[in-house]
Amino acid sequence: MSFTLPGNSPLAPIVLDAVVIGAGQAGLAAAYYLRKRGVAFRVLEGAATAGAAWAARYDSLRLFSPAWASGLPGRPWPGNSLRYPTRDETVAYLRDYAAHFNFSVDTGQRVTRLAPASGQPGYAVHTAAGRTYLARYVIIATGPYAQPRVPAWANQLPPAVAQRHSRDYQRPAQLPGTGPVAVVGSGNSALQIAADLAATGRPLFAAFDERTSAIPNNQLMWTGLTLTGFMKVPRHTAPGRWLHRQPEGVVSGDLHHLRRLGNVAFIGRATGVQSGGIIQGAKAPTPPLEAVVWATGYRPNYPWIELPILAPDGFPQHQRGLTAAPGVAFLGLPWLDTRSSALLNGAGADARRVVAALLAGQ
């Protein structure tokens, strides 16, 4: 591939074979396979370092998979492979991974526009820092959807009730007071955050859907998942379509721990708000609350993509990561191909397949 480099300005476009947007696990795995194929590329990261999205997560976060099942291609985790790494260990691993392979990661380059290149094949990637990158291939690896999603009735809570989405929660001291707090959500992050808050001794109300399945999380389970290939079943197969319809389970040990705490009450799935700062659960209401943490997931937010690869609802349109725009692909999305696609242990397989397909012109 070649582009004509216009002018000699210090801010003239940077011409490459490929651009990877995002320096999390998916973007770094893509970089690994682009490097192996001899492709000239750069990874664009809006923050100051690789792995920055992990650094913004809550302090008490631990991976839900052991280190041996969480590595990126070409570099296993250091240290005890049986441990469940912490947030800070994960950030350190990703930074070390990028440094070990000496990937070209351009930090401070938040992408503001992805559009067809003017007058030549390929695409122009523009950043808030004023840079433009021209490339034949673009891999969008900004991770699972990043726009917080909360119930429509959340705005009915009075202003005195502090509200924070799990994306912006890091530690209990961020929430005011010592009185009742609710965590709304039925996923693993909701359980970890609830336990974090409950450890302060304040009354904790878990708005958790009782229909959510709970599964063990131990070395035996991960060995079984690995040997059976359960986490690698492609979504486009009949078994994969069935698995995709099943709700995500939570770690049974975390759920049982939370149920044993004397200052925690489970109120069932949150259904609405009552006057006075009360959240109604399927089983019971909370008392008047001082704060709420919404661990209720995310929705897509791609206003910077000017290509016909988004559905009317904003979700990416792709086939196992590949889009209708030749040379453009997604990585790191939930169920991009398998249940593990958005996880550390799924990034490598998806990146290998997507990079090979892009370079083959598929």
Rank of each mutant, 00 (worst) to 15 (best):
S2L: 14
F3M: 14
G7Y: 06
V15L: 14
G24N: 12
A31W: 11
Y33G: 08
R37F: 04
V39A: 09
A52Q: 08
D59C: 08
D59M: 06
S60L: 11
R62E: 05
F64H: 15
S65P: 01
A67N: 05
S70Q: 10
S70R: 14
G71P: 07
P73Y: 09
P76E: 12
P76S: 10
R83S: 11
A92W: 02
Y93P: 06
V105H: 14
L134C: 05
Y137L: 14
I140M: 07
A141I: 12
P144F: 10
A146H: 03
Q147A: 15
A154R: 15
V161Q: 08
P176F: 02
A182I: 04
N188K: 03
L191H: 05
L191D: 05
Q192C: 04
L197D: 07
A199S: 06
G224Y: 04
T226Y: 09
T226E: 13
T228V: 10
M231E: 10
R235A: 12
R235G: 05
A238K: 07
G240F: 00
W242I: 11
R245S: 11
Q246D: 04
P247D: 01
E248R: 15
G249P: 12
L255V: 01
H256A: 15
R260V: 02
G276T: 04
I279A: 13
A291C: 01
W294H: 03
N301D: 15
Y302P: 01
Y302E: 03
L310I: 03
F315I: 07
F315E: 10
G321E: 11
L322D: 09
A342F: 08
D350W: 01
L359E: 10
